[in-house]
Design a protein around this nucleic acid. Structure first.
Lengths: 146, 146
DNA sequence: TTAAGTGCAAATTATTTGCAGTAAG
DNA sequence: CTTACTGCAAATAATTTGCACTTAA
């Protein structure tokens, strides 16, 4: 309930563990912590390795940065998350895995979901001969009005 | 005429120089060469720093990799090109500067324009309060059918 | 002449990997 | 037990930067 609570609730940890189990990933302490931070409240989350590492540290669940990288990679490989390309340098990861549009807040370098029901692609270019569409990424870049 | 010609034609160099002049960029030998390689034939081109560096070397117009990076950055700042985010690591640069869809050929790590007239976005999410849409990036990822 | 551009090498940033120790099945 | 995971430190990859030299205006 308390959004500033520093420790993960048991329900959050359980949700995280279930999420891992669904992908047959070994539920180590680190993975369960990260999973709980990512999906513990049932909402989608957008993180970078760095931001998730910070979240974990602040929740009192320390995990090495290398493990955060490896874990995010593992979660993506397992189909639990997807990588979103918005910025040349950093990589962003999203707990929602279907094709949906994103807002990228340029001044904060933050990524969030854009309301998918407000996006209508009436026509999409055909895939060239012998190719198929793997995914369609839509990123709406935002800046402060002024 | 010869698509395998190793040296830049005078017309290509002239086109490149004009392109620079349009943005009030000092036409150094290196910049004119790179500009000629990018827009010399009047068509859009999608490059990475590495690929453009290779192109220059093969055209007998050697430019240091650092200068290629600095120059691409300068061209973007001047509004002559735009950066396109498709892959976490590498940055891609496009000589076409309006919002238009891209194909990203995953197996070749190659970027190309998708036919813009075949994309129709009937509805786009509203920008959140106090924000405005800076750009809309659409990347269609392609893989071999199979 | 002078401010800007170039090239090298060194620095930075994001990410991955080797390997010894630790823990899950 | 055995194989996979973790964490550190070192390696890698893409890009940027400091600085002495060169060049366009």
């Amino acid at each position: 309930m308390d959004k500033c609570d520093l420790t993960l609730s048991d329900t959050a940890l359980q949700t995280g563990a279930d999420w891992l189990a669904g992908a047959a990933l070994r539920p180590t302490r680190q993975r369960v912590s990260l999973a709980a931070l990512l999906v513990g409240d049932g909402r989608n989350r957008h993180v970078t390795a760095e931001s998730l590492h910070d979240l974990a540290r602040r929740a009192g669940e320390p995990v090495s940065l290398a493990t955060v990288y490896n874990t995010l990679r593992a979660f993506c490989d397992a189909g639990l998350m997807q990588e979103v390309n918005v910025e040349g340098s950093r990589s962003y990861f999203d707990t929602r895995t279907d094709d949906h549009p994103h807002f990228f807040w340029e001044d904060e370098a933050r990524l969030s979901d854009a309301p998918a029901d407000q996006l209508t692609i009436a026509r999409l270019p055909d895939a060239p001969e012998g190719m198929e569409v793997a995914s369609v990424e839509v990123v709406i870049r935002l800046r402060k009005r002024g």
